[in-house]
């Protein structure tokens, strides 16, 4: 479902961010991507979202060939991927419910489906009671869960989370990781980019380590 072959990425300013990446990720996998700052982790996730295009090599995601893909098809690729950002990116003047519903509305979902799906997803992340609150009225961990609910609401095949635990305390981190595991158990592929070694140690999953744009290790089990 995700397949990268000999992918290189050189940014227009000459930075060589990825130098020959080969990855195969199957449907339903859970994996961590770790590595020092500037290693190319975010560049990798940007390639999957077609935010950037590879300088050479091939990228396949959910059946889309991202190299040959037309610009007008990008939205449809992105509907198969849910993204969770480190900074949550919630809309301040919309309630929690509206923030999640927004993601459905902008891809043209029917109001009936929205009314059914949003409460369900909010229940899944344990925020049913906060539906009417605004982002500033809830904690960082709760905000991160709203971001997760928004990523999930369109039922994507893959969830990509770049530093999902970067802005919350260890207790919250564990809650969010547990949620991601729960989502993964339901069949969604989960890809977590993180610096948090404790988390990687604790959750026994596949771990890919990138250094200087190269994969230096790819092993099952974080221990």
């Amino acid at each position: 479902m995700i397949e990268l072959r000999d992918v290189h990425k050189v940014y227009s300013n000459g930075t060589n961010a990825l130098k020959g990446i080969d990855i195969n990720i199957d449907q339903g996998e859970f994996l961590f991507i770790v590595g020092p700052s500037g290693a190319g982790k975010s560049t990798f996730t940007k390639l999957l979202l077609r935010e950037e295009t590879p300088s050479s090599g091939s990228v396949m995601v959910n059946g889309y060939n991202l190299v040959k893909m037309r610009r007008s098809k990008i939205p449809y690729l992105r509907r198969t991927i849910g993204v969770v950002f480190q900074d949550f990116r919630l809309i301040d003047n919309k309630t929690i419910y509206e923030n999640v519903a927004f993601a459905m509305r902008v891809i043209g979902a029917s109001p009936k489906n929205i009314r059914k799906r949003v409460p369900y997803v909010l229940g899944l992340v344990g925020l049913a009671s906060k539906a009417k609150s605004f982002p500033r009225e809830i904690s960082g961990g709760e905000q991160q869960r709203v971001a997760l609910a928004r990523a999930l609401v369109n039922n994507p095949a893959i969830i990509i989370a770049d530093e999902p635990t970067g802005n919350v305390d260890p207790q919250m981190s564990r809650e969010i990781m547990d949620l991601l595991c729960e989502i993964n158990k339901r069949g969604t592929t989960v890809l977590v980019v993180t610096h948090d070694h404790d988390i990687v140690q604790e959750y026994d999953k596949r771990v890919i380590t990138i250094k200087d744009g190269v994969i230096v290790s790819d092993k099952e089990g974080g221990k």
């Binding site: 449809y76 992105r78 990116r89 809309i91 927004f102 993601a103 902008v106 891809i107 928004r150 369109n154």
Partner: peptide
């Protein structure tokens, strides 16, 4: 800006935005 950015990530089409 933020709304547009989110729209792009969840897969809203250009014309919708």
């Amino acid at each position: 800006k933020k709304e547009i950015n989110i729209m792009k990530y969840v897969g809203a089409t250009d014309s919708f935005i």
